[in-house]
Simulated assay, not measured.
Amino acid sequence: MRPFVLLSALILTLGVAAPAMPTAPSSGPVSQLDHVLLWGRDIDQVSAIMAVKLGFQVRPGRAPGGVANRYVRLADRGYIELLGVTRPNPDMDPGMLADQASLKGGPGARSVGVRSSALNQVHALLKGKGLAVTPVFTASANDPDGGGPTKPPRWRLFAFERPPLSSTLFFIDYAPDKTDPASVADDRAARQHPNGARALSAFWLLSSDADADRKQLERLGFAGATPVRVPQISARGYCIPVGPNGVLALEPDGQGIAADALRDGGPQVLGVSIGVADLDAAKRRVERGYEQPLTDYKGVWGDAFLAPTRDDLGMLIEFHALPGTAGSKTCGDLKR
């Protein structure tokens, strides 16, 4: 029953000022990373870490029933959704309660979304493969942030009755963006960050069996995995392309951050990779935020550094040079 109750949590959070995304026409299913759900110890704490220590612009959301959400929206249309409890005894649905039980009241992430421009086609394809998908759910016709009953629903999504991965995965699509000048200007401004962040490049899924996640991602249609190691956290596994982005399916490789995280929290979204316009400037900003020097390294995506966010956020954030700049690459480049 957990996927259904988690789906209700997704529907609740998406119903409160989630950013609209465009639907790109395509002759076949087109997918890319959409967003990660990141719980903080409280909404102001997680917002302050993202803004003050890391240099992101945090956009407001809403707080129905005592659970607030806010957004870090990126130029490539990916985003991080921040969640936090705002009052004692909030009105949590079973999915939120399950997440909080897994996190033991602390910060962290357990769910990720993939955006598909052909949601119905992907739904039918996965159902035909024998995967137990939920029905496709949509935003309500009277959604306060939607276009009204005569317009397409602001979002549509489906999840799985039995989770195929070690962390929860759902597929989602959005109505086209508003095209009036004020909305276009607001959207452009919302995606500009003091730290130069531009792209959500990867989800890091940590489990005790990276190959199991690799096999399931291939069954979901995401093939082309390449073996990788992430020595900064003592992990190994696979880089699996998802459109222009990728998923790192990881397991511990000896003692270190990955082993500690798995022991303390079980399977989880251990981190995300963020592409930035100026890596040196972003690094200096994070060093000032955390008042400590940080080390550059050559990561899966090229030149990178790791922000020390695990204690604060329950999730690591890797900053890397954008693809197309010196020393950078994409998941699909690893086989070349």
Score class of each variant (00 low, 15 high):
Asn89Ser: 01
Pro25Met: 08
Trp204Ala: 08
Gly108Ile: 00
Thr168Val: 14
Val122Leu: 07
Leu217Ala: 15
Pro153Ile: 06
Phe160Ala: 04
Ala281Arg: 15
Ser116Pro: 05
Ala185Trp: 04
Gly275Leu: 12
Ser8Phe: 06
Asp76Trp: 07
Leu205Thr: 00
Lys178Ala: 01
Leu220Met: 13
Ala24Gln: 09
Gln292Glu: 06
Ser273Asp: 12
Phe160Ile: 15
Asp93Phe: 01
Asn120Ala: 14
Ala321Ser: 09
Tyr79Phe: 04
Ala258Phe: 12
Ser167His: 02
Leu334Tyr: 06
Lys151Phe: 05
Val85Asn: 09
Ala132Asp: 14
Ala68His: 05
Ile80Ala: 01
Lys298Glu: 05
Ser140Ile: 04
Leu10Ile: 05
Gly221Lys: 12
Val136Asn: 02
Thr179Asp: 15
Asp333Gln: 15
Pro94Ala: 05
Gly148Thr: 03
Ala190Arg: 11
Pro152Asp: 00
Arg62Lys: 08
Asp211Tyr: 00
Asn195Leu: 10
Pro153Val: 09
Gln216Phe: 13
Pro94Glu: 07
Arg2Met: 09
Val300Gly: 13
Pro293Asn: 03
Leu103Met: 14
Ala68Arg: 05
Ala175His: 06
Ala223Ile: 04
Gln57Asn: 15
Leu262Gln: 11
Leu7Lys: 08
Ala212Pro: 14
Asp99Glu: 14
Leu83Glu: 01
Val136Met: 04
Ala223Phe: 14
Ala259Tyr: 14
Ala98His: 12
Asp303Cys: 13
Ser328Arg: 12
Asn195Val: 06
Asp280Thr: 09
Lys298Ile: 03
Pro90Asp: 10
Pro163Ala: 10
Leu334Asp: 03
Thr179Tyr: 11
Ile80Met: 13
Arg77Ser: 12
Lys329Thr: 03
Ala304Ile: 05
Ser31Phe: 07
Ala189Pro: 14
Gly254Val: 07
Gly224Ile: 06
Val133Glu: 11
Asp303Leu: 12
Gly275Thr: 04
Pro94Asn: 00
Pro135Phe: 08
Ser47Ala: 13
Val286Gly: 02
Gly40Trp: 11
Leu12Trp: 10
